[in-house]
Amino acid sequence: MEQANMTDDVGNNTDNCPTIDEFRNQVYSTSYSLITVLGFVGNSFALMVLIRTYRQSSPFHVYMMNLAMSDLLCVMTLPLRVLYYVRKGQWEQGDFLCRISSYFLYVNLYCSIYFMTAMSVTRFVAIVFPVQNLRLVTMSRARFVCLGIWIFSSLASSPFLMSGQSIDPITNKTKCFEPPKSASDRLPKLQGLNNVALALGFVLPFIIILICYAGIVRTLLSRTPAARRQQNSASKAIRMIVIVLLTFLVSFMPYHIQRTIHLNFLSRKSTCSEQTFMHKSVVVTLCLAASNSCFDPMLYFFSGEGFRSRLSSLRHTVRNSTLRHTSKLKPITSSEYGESHKLDAS
């Protein structure tokens, strides 16, 4: 489904056109640093809450845990990219880490898309088919779906493991994350693979999500005002719709559209201004794609089943544990000692 290093970086298609290396290095290093901090803090905290409250588990809870783990896997490789761009495009971490850092970014990208799709279908069944929900949506099925998503995304992104570091013959620098050149023999194959990735990795999940949300909205609007006030599932569903659609429109859609345009752009002649614009758009949309790890904690907090109640329960448990620990360590004051001494004497 995925193609190796399709638009992971930008290089020069012609020697006459100016490079955008300075723009690329600044944007990538700044964006990836920010995404690393926000994504790591947000997803680590969410995963801690989900693990500590696992007794309250549900199918939606299973999808949230897997989504958080996928995001953490991605953000842990981003510091390697930051180092690469801070060093002005000089890779010093070895061939294996070059392959892995590209691989995990795209595993996360498609795991996020499919986990969001599974969460949307789960919410759709719960609201539109509440009677059949208990029979159709179970913990065992949720775990099976998660396993299938991990296997599919891992295999589909495996081409990234086939392309590692290389030596630039002009600068003699060790490179990583480099895109295909316009004259590359692999370009037709990459364009075909991109079409498959676009269809299975973005268009199909997006259509499923839109169908689910249309069904959810229709069902919610058909309820009586009293029924809407009694059930808070409606507000959770609306919040999830907003966050998931925002993630798709900001992170996933620009990247997939631009990637398709870019691969077709490489197969034709172009001016320097066109190349500069296209290369800069590669940088921007790839940063947006990586930023999906920052959107997901919003999904847990605002639309997760009982996530805020889980957080409140965890905070209450920690507070009680701290109070008990403090009471055990509390020193005996002089007045308390005097009273106890009098009691002993009497």
Rank of each mutant, 00 (worst) to 15 (best):
Q3F: 05
N5W: 06
T7V: 15
G11M: 04
G11A: 11
N13A: 05
N13S: 10
T14A: 07
D15M: 12
C17T: 04
T19E: 10
I20T: 08
D21G: 01
F23P: 07
Y28M: 14
N43G: 03
V49A: 09
L50H: 08
L50F: 04
Y54M: 13
Q56K: 14
F60W: 07
H61G: 09
M65H: 04
D71G: 14
D71W: 01
L73E: 01
L73T: 11
T77G: 05
P79H: 06
P79T: 03
V82P: 04
V82D: 05
V82E: 08
V82S: 12
K88T: 10
W91T: 00
D95I: 07
F96I: 08
R99L: 07
I100Q: 11
Y110H: 12
Y110C: 09
C111E: 06
M116W: 00
V121S: 00
F124P: 00
V125Q: 02
A126T: 08
V128R: 15
P130F: 07
P130M: 07
M139E: 06
A142T: 06
F144M: 13
V145T: 12
C146S: 14
L147E: 03
L147K: 12
I151T: 10
F152S: 06
S153G: 01
A156M: 06
S163G: 00
N172F: 06
K175A: 03
C176A: 12
S182K: 14
S182W: 13
G192K: 08
N194G: 06
A197I: 02
A199E: 10
L200P: 03
F202G: 01
P205A: 03
P205F: 09
I209F: 02
L210A: 13
C212L: 06
L220S: 13
L221G: 03
A227E: 15
Q230A: 15
Q231F: 08
Q231E: 15
A234W: 11
A234R: 05
I243S: 08
I243M: 11
V244W: 04
L246H: 07
L246I: 02
T247D: 11
Y255E: 05
L263E: 01
L266T: 04
E274T: 07
T276M: 12
V284I: 15
C287K: 01
A289F: 01
A289S: 15
A289L: 10
S291I: 09
S291H: 08
S291D: 07
N292D: 10
M298L: 15
M298E: 00
L299M: 13
L299G: 11
Y300R: 03
S303N: 09
G304A: 11
G304V: 07
G306P: 08
F307S: 06
R310F: 05
V318G: 00
S321C: 11
L323H: 03
K330I: 09
Y337A: 14
H341C: 05
H341K: 14
K342R: 14
L343Q: 15
A345W: 10
A345M: 10
A345R: 11
